[in-house]
Design a protein around this nucleic acid. Structure first.
Length: 758
DNA sequence: ATAGGGTTAG
């Protein structure tokens, strides 16, 4: 053998070993780089096999920059090279990039083959881009590859993902013969649309054509029904599959568990959990996530945590399910703790994680925290979407953070999600809670499509503002527009009637519920009726209604009665309601305070002391009155009697001045509202310290004359404060909105929108 | 190197 021949042989061996070393999918990145360098030196990269191998290695390592550079360096890239890159991009769900590579391939005049087209169709499906999908279909048509079964299946799949089930079916009907893969894809597509009958029909057709469904076919149906919220159907199919002798795998179990969770069927959930254990699928990430989700939805936080801690390693799905489940079960502090722990552990939290935590805070009264998290989320580079926004907005509404709410509204417009039905309903509610009912109405009128949530949002908004006329108008408009009222609509309309003192109207609507609409009254409707009748002073009638309720009244109903008794200072019924409430919610301070205030209004100081002693013995402290005002984008919180605000001396000075003015014009402080056994002068002092007055004074100090003020209070507005704020609105020429626990008070020119009825 | 099925935010 000549030396040259030996060298060539050696080179070939080397070449082959390099080639083989890249066969392993686990070849390290540095090794790939070494081979790349070697290949560049020796020039063998013109070998398309080596080029393909190198490209796929880079793709496996997510090194798309290197892969693209390499592709650029090849003088005459083959269709293989492009194919590999498109495949890798599709696999990484980087569909846009996959399509970009494909169009580059086309521009070089390379004709697509039956291998690359399915991946391209898959990228279109992944993007749900019907436009690109149709283009690919056109290319398939021109290329004459339309009869390739892989290509056909991928096109059908693309149309299904783009919710073009008819187009998919058209292609399907043209197939000479469909195999199990095609049937399964189409059936799953129908299930995703919730077309129960079509699924059954196709299933029969499949069996008639002699095609046997397999596990994947069943899983597609179960997942599809779960996706389209046909939860019962999903469970029925799971049972059927089991009955047919298929052993459910991780895919079947995760889908069916999700459906079980939404139905809150704990017993079924427990059975399926047994199944999971039997199959040894406890470590499957998706199964674990849906188990956690299921226990969370079935109000079993302990079992939920157990599943979470039994899974090895952290999985984003499981973490998100845990955070959601904890908040859902009122353990929002624990949820926050876990959320921070995940962050500390370097977990890469996604938009769902943040949205879930924001929703948890928002729904559990932690409004400020929700707003902080929203900011923090954007700081780490995540963009809120059409789910995040409706989760955050209730927090803005709850503390009347109008500036934040407006910013979120602008963001929704910029990102094109403001027409989303959930987003716009949440905006309507937020503006109403921030006192801007006219803005709510404008948004409502502009909505292109409305569901009951939107109608209820605007009716509820009007109710909160005491605009019963508008609320009733919309309630009827809703029906003439073909939208049937649901039980929430009635809660809104009843509360509107009760705010406005429309007692007879309210009774009429209440009676029509079951008679005309077939909606049985729920707890919240009875609570509204108690408020409605109670406020009108018809306390005996109210009590009779409670006694005749078809189910056991809850604390809301008794609480409504107790509040009415406080309004009319009815000791006898108040004691009855309070006794019930002390049993139902022994740690709710508000109930003790109300009873004590009823006694105090009748100067029954011994009884007042006795209630106070009970509270002390239970370790309870009265909820302090608390008001908020948003000034220059910052929320200020003022507590009754609290002196700690930096502008407190100015506040006091301003209030004293107003007091003098009032006395001059013949108005004196109404010390009946001080429910303590103290001297008259001290009573005046106490009234001056009420949080709503402090907040209004702070607003006067920090805003230009004539501008509108808005205050929210955690308790019902005090009668003296109501009188003082009316006076302020007149002498200062200001519109002042005060939202208390029940409704809005709109003070203008010395009168209040509630007509002094609240 | 190519086609069908999974979970976790409102």
């Amino acid at each position: 053998m000549t030396k040259a021949k030996q060298a060539l042989c050696l080179f070939e061996c080397l070449h082959r070993s390099i080639f083989n070393s890249l066969n392993s999918t686990t070849a390290s990145l540095s090794h790939t780089h070494q081979v790349h360098a070697h290949v560049l030196k020796t020039g063998v990269f013109e070998d398309s096999h080596v080029a393909t191998k190198l490209l796929s290695q880079y793709a496996n390592h997510f090194c798309f920059t290197d892969a693209n550079q390499f592709l650029d360096s090849i003088s005459e890239p083959t269709i293989f090279s492009f194919s590999v890159l498109i495949y890798a991009y599709t696999k990484q769900r980087l569909f846009n990039q996959a399509l970009r590579v494909f169009s580059r391939m086309l521009s070089l005049g390379l004709a697509p083959d039956s291998h690359v087209l399915p991946n391209v169709a898959k990228a279109c499906a992944g993007l749900s881009s019907l436009k690109s999908g149709k283009q690919v279909h056109g290319i398939v048509f021109v290329s004459g590859l339309g009869s390739d079964s892989f290509v056909q299946a991928s096109l059908i799949h693309m149309y299904l993902k783009c919710i073009r089930i008819r187009d998919a079916h058209k292609l399907f009907d043209r197939l000479p013969q469909a195999d199990v893969v095609i049937f399964s894809a189409l059936i799953a597509g129908y299930a995703r649309q919730g077309c129960v009958d079509d699924v059954k029909k196709l299933f029969k057709k499949m069996e008639d054509s002699g095609v046997q469904p397999n596990l994947v076919s069943w899983n597609g149906i179960i997942a599809g029904f779960n996706h389209s919220r046909y939860y019962e159907e999903a469970i029925i199919m799971f049972r059927k599959m089991h009955f047919e002798g298929f052993i459910p795998d991780g895919c079947s179990l995760s889908s069916v568990l999700s459906a079980v969770g939404d139905l809150e069927s704990l017993n079924v959930g427990l059975q399926i959990h047994d199944h999971v254990i039997k199959q040894g699928l406890g470590q499957d990430k998706c199964v674990a996530s849906s188990l956690i989700d299921m226990y969370g939805k079935c109000a079993c936080p302990i079992d939920m945590s157990k599943v979470f801690f039994e899974v090895d390693g952290l999985d984003i799905g499981a973490c998100n399910a845990l955070v959601t489940g904890l908040s859902r079960n009122g353990l929002v502090d624990k949820a926050l703790e876990m959320f921070r722990q995940f962050q500390d552990q370097g977990m890469e939290l996604n938009i769902r994680s943040w949205t879930s935590m924001i929703a948890g805070c928002s729904q559990n009264g932690l409004s400020i925290q929700a707003l902080d998290l929203f900011r923090e989320m954007q700081d780490v580079g995540l963009r809120p979407n059409n789910v995040t926004i409706p989760c955050l907005l209730p927090a803005c509404g709850s503390i009347a953070a109008l500036m934040h709410g407006k910013a979120v509204h602008c963001y929704s417009i910029r990102t094109g999600i403001s027409n989303d039905i959930f987003v716009s309903s949440a905006l309507i509610d937020m503006y109403a809670k921030c006192g801007r009912i006219q803005v709510s109405r404008q948004l409502f009128d502009k909505m292109p499509a409305k569901n009951s949530v939107c109608w209820n949002a605007i009716i509820g908004g009007y109710a909160m503002h005491g605009n019963a006329k508008e609320a009733i108008e919309i309630f009827h408009l809703m029906q003439s527009n073909g939208q049937k009222p649901d039980f929430i609509s009635f809660t809104c309309i009843l509360s509107a009637c009760s705010q406005a003192g429309l007692t007879e109207e309210g009774c009429k609507y209440f009676n029509s519920m079951s008679k005309e609409y077939g909606i049985e009254a729920r707890m919240e409707h009875y609570a509204c009726m108690v408020t409605l009748l109670g406020r009108a002073g018809r306390l005996k009638e109210t009590y009779k209604m409670i006694e005749q309720m078809p189910f056991e009244p809850d604390a809301c109903v008794w609480g409504a009665l107790l509040s009415s008794c406080r309004v009319h200072n009815n000791v006898c019924l108040g004691e009855v309601a309070a006794r019930k409430l002390f049993q139902l919610e022994p740690t709710n301070c508000g109930n003790y305070t109300l009873l004590s205030n009823i006694y105090a209004s009748k100067s029954m100081w011994t009884e007042v002391d006795s209630v106070r002693d009970t509270m002390k013995a239970l370790g309870l402290r009265k909820d302090p009155g608390c008001s908020w005002i948003e000034l220059n984008n910052k929320m200020h919180m003022l507590l009754a009697g609290d002196q700690s605000h930096p502008q407190m001396s100015q506040i006091t000075e301003r209030l004293n001045k107003i007091n003098m003015e009032m006395k001059k014009s013949g108005c004196f402080p109404n010390t009946d509202f001080v429910l303590q056994d103290v001297e008259e002068q001290e009573k005046e002092q106490i009234l001056c310290g009420h949080s709503e007055k402090l907040a209004v004074a702070l607003g006067l100090l920090n805003t230009p004359p004539g501008s509108t003020l808005q205050v929210i209070k955690n308790l019902r507005i005090c009668g003296d404060c109501h009188a003082v704020i009316k006076f302020i609105s007149s002498i200062e020429g200001r519109e002042i909105y005060v939202r208390d626990t029940n409704r809005f008070h709109h003070f203008k020119d010395g009168v209040c929108s509630c007509g002094d009825y609240w």
